[in-house]
Design a protein around this nucleic acid. Sequence first.
DNA 1: CCGCCCGTATGACATCTGTCATCCGGCAGT
DNA 2: ACTGCCGGATGACAGATGTCATACGGGCGG
Lengths: 204, 204
Amino acid sequence: MSSTIKVLLAEDQSMVREALAALLGLEEDIEVVAQVARGDEVVAAAHAHDIDVALLDIEMPGCTGIEAAARLHRELPAVKLVVLTTFGRPGYLRSAMEAGADAFLVKDAPAAQLAEAVRKVLAGDRVIDPTLAAAALAEGANPLTDREREVLRAAADGSTNAELARALHLSQGTVRNYLSTAIQKLAVRNRTEAVRIAREKGWL
Amino acid sequence: MSSTIKVLLAEDQSMVREALAALLGLEEDIEVVAQVARGDEVVAAAHAHDIDVALLDIEMPGCTGIEAAARLHRELPAVKLVVLTTFGRPGYLRSAMEAGADAFLVKDAPAAQLAEAVRKVLAGDRVIDPTLAAAALAEGANPLTDREREVLRAAADGSTNAELARALHLSQGTVRNYLSTAIQKLAVRNRTEAVRIAREKGWL
DNA sequence: CCGCCCGTATGACATCTGTCATCCGGCAGT
DNA sequence: ACTGCCGGATGACAGATGTCATACGGGCGG
């Protein structure tokens, strides 16, 4: 016991990543032994370094921190997972938990909570902002079906129905139907609002 | 001369802000003497602390780092300005320079460049990513008129023409005209794409 | 086995959006 | 004084979008 806690840090923005590493480096009992900038490099790096805790940003190229968490949880269940994100979206919290995360932190929480969380998850605790947890429970589950989500995601960039139909191998009418039901489920008036709301809730 | 360089750090996400402070704290010659989380607190903090360099994130509540830079430049022209941002949007670079910034850094640049930039601006140099500078020059100036930008910004959340007309005290037809010309200037096919492109270029 | 939801599709309809021509008053350059 | 651009507006039109009813096959829970 109690040599240092070995941490893998995954975050795409170098400056932020190295700054977080500097922050954790100030702690006597924590050592950042690996850094990656892409979600799809997490698992390999974890295998290569024998780590105790993985600190994962959600928004990353390659794959999201949540997907990375899920894979890591399957392949190396002993590794504790701390998910870190810019956006406190309740849906994110929900999916992070389903992926096996032990802690969920938003980046506008005080920096001290980071090292705190690392130590706590290693001790077997879970770390979740209670406000966010309440919000996640209050808003209920994602009402969108898989297809509705796919279409909405594809529609986010302003693609037209015809383009969506082509891209998703659907008829144009079907695309409209999915968007229509999504719009109704989200209680908004057009696809743009639907995309916005779904994003805010972390349902996209 | 040459005691330490006194830095003000403005960034809304506590964890990132304190991590950057930790990073700069590792440098012998740099000292973070003040931290703020809002753009509209920058000027007051600068007055209170007699700083050499202000390090400003763009995306902040209160006001943007660019607006804060402009005010600081007017009130305390001796303070050097480093603008830091997540998004390498050419339009941001342009407006940052117009606001009097001495350096423009994107957060996915290596962390070492941060301290580097602080030292260089103090020495009277300017620090700009050459790739970004080229992009900013290549894309030309913002082609949108004030009103077009306003309408586009207001349309970003999915508001309908009628809502936009009400909000901006315009006729519905005028709203459509502005959106139409914006769409044509940006060479896209609908308002959603127009918003996306304008955002990407930093023209919004 | 029956109902229910999902994925997919069609057709009809109403409304919203985008385009275009045209107009006005004001202001800046030449 | 003339020209051109901007802000603002109207009307007409085509095409995109949103709604609704309806249909069919597959799967899953009761």
